[in-house]
Amino acid sequence: MGQKRYFIRDFTEVLERVDGQIDTVVDLFGGSGLLSHTAKHVLPGCRVVYNDFDRYIDRLAAVDQTNEILKAIKERLTGVEPNQRLTPGQRAEVLAVVREYEQRDGYVDILTIGRNVLFSGKWVTSLEELCKHTMYNRVRPGAYECGGYLDGLEVVHMDYRELFERERHNSRALFVLDPPYLTTECGQYENYWKLTDYLDVLRLLKGTKYVCFTSDKSQIVELCQWLAGEYRESAPMYGAEVRQRTNTLNYQAKFNDMMITRL
């Protein structure tokens, strides 16, 4: 689960630096679309390709339903202090609300619902998983809004390798790579995302303009530094600029996110 919102200022600075030098931004691992959205806002004249492999558009389409569910949950938790642990009865009421909507509509954005009732850093993708967790009153105030969020984007749902192959001959393209982090939750990629898959991504960096995101959990930067010492210019990430920030998920979980750029 990425923390790209903390890098928006840095990402914006990079985009402004290449303004006029590129005509396309290709977001190979689009996730929530935040980076694609930012790229289109900063460079409105550029073509921005958002690879929605996880089908985030389904969650956006369900925003009204999600707001209804959270409103119903909030009403049932009236009087419960923020971040307070729910009693078994309160927890049962929350699950009853979610189950009712899922049975009625056939779909519920469980991940977003979970972020409002689970401890910070915890997430689930199914009602079955949600039923296994302790819950807290973390329901956000107000409602989610997403009007116009994907306006102007070219939305595709492709394997990142196919998309790269389609766009790689454009010398005026900037590739944005935010692959699943090793040793972390990998969402839709979790069934196959291993070290070799990450190393395959590094092949895409050669000869391209890129912004690549990773973390110190993967130790991939240390690997690239070692390769740079051995193979110099031919090594992945050789001569790239690295920006870093520390993220705190909860009282016991911290890690360093990195944005690596070569233009």
Rank of each mutant, 00 (worst) to 15 (best):
L95H: 03
A96V: 06
R91P: 05
V94S: 00
V94H: 01
V94P: 02
R85M: 12
K71I: 08
G79I: 01
L95E: 07
E81M: 11
A72E: 15
G79F: 00
T87S: 15
P88E: 12
L70K: 03
G89V: 06
K74S: 09
E68S: 15
T78P: 00
T66L: 15
G79M: 03
P88F: 01
K74G: 01
R91D: 07
G79K: 01
L86Q: 04
T66V: 07
P82Q: 08
E75D: 14
V80K: 05
P88W: 04
R91G: 09
K74C: 01
E81D: 11
T66E: 09
V80N: 02
E75G: 08
R85I: 10
G79P: 00
A96K: 14
I69A: 05
V94Y: 00
I69D: 02
N83T: 12
R91T: 12
Q65G: 09
E81T: 10
L95W: 02
T78V: 10
T66P: 05
L70D: 00
P82S: 05
N83R: 14
Q90G: 07
P88V: 07
E75W: 04
G79R: 06
A72M: 15
P88Y: 05
E81Q: 14
E93G: 15
A92K: 13
E81S: 14
Q84D: 11
A96L: 10
L86V: 06
L86W: 05
L77N: 03
Q84V: 08
A96T: 11
R85D: 05
I69P: 04
R85S: 09
